[in-house]
Amino acid sequence: MKKLLFVLLLAVTGFSACKKDSSSDNYDATAQAAADDAKIQAYLKTNNLTATKDPSGVYYQVVTAGTGAYPTSTSTVNVNYKGTLLNGTVFDSGSLTNQSLSGLIAGWQYGIPHINTGGRIILYIPSTLGYKNQAQGSIPANSVLIFTIDLLGFK
């Protein structure tokens, strides 16, 4: 009898481990992008801010333009940054040195090329160009991200 229960327990455990994550199955990137866009527009309006929408869906506000050439999505960048959620919660801040822009979230790849060395930009990144429907540490799934980025230099 114990042997039968053990085998049954193994079978149930095996089948439950194979269960798909229903949140991934129901994820609709197009619908999420539309919801995020509405959240960003509401945030900008509520806070009386003006930002430009990039064709990718990232909104950006150039605070300081900087000088010289513009980085590309394949540039290696040196930046200081602060990341917050729409509710003002700071989830990260720091510096990146010699970081390949192509290795960062898509929102940075689309946004940073809008400033030059010495420039400061604020990016309003829809979740579809951030961490999508995956939570990352203190960042909930489907979160719009706001980054203030100082571009110190690039190669």
Score class of each variant (00 low, 15 high):
K53P: 08
S73Q: 15
L44T: 11
V62S: 02
Y131K: 06
Y27I: 04
I40N: 03
P55F: 11
T89I: 10
Y131W: 13
I139R: 01
T72P: 04
N133W: 12
S16C: 09
K19F: 09
A31D: 11
N133E: 15
A31N: 13
T46R: 15
I115W: 05
Y110T: 08
N133M: 12
S16V: 13
N87K: 08
T64L: 05
Y60R: 01
G14F: 10
I105A: 11
W108L: 12
G68D: 03
T13D: 00
M1G: 07
V12P: 03
L145C: 03
A141D: 06
G14R: 04
A51E: 01
I125E: 05
S24Q: 15
T128H: 07
A65E: 09
G88M: 11
D21H: 07
T46A: 15
T74K: 14
A35L: 10
N116P: 07
C18Q: 08
G119P: 08
G111T: 05
I115L: 07
I139P: 03
L152C: 08
G94P: 03
A11I: 15
S127P: 08
M1V: 08
Q41M: 12
S75D: 12
V144H: 09
Y43P: 08
V90D: 07
F15N: 03
S23P: 04
L4G: 00
G57W: 09
Y27N: 08
S75G: 12
V58A: 03
G103P: 10
A141P: 13
G83N: 05
N48H: 10
L49E: 14
A106Q: 12
A31I: 14
S100C: 02
V77M: 00
V12G: 06
N26D: 11
P71A: 07
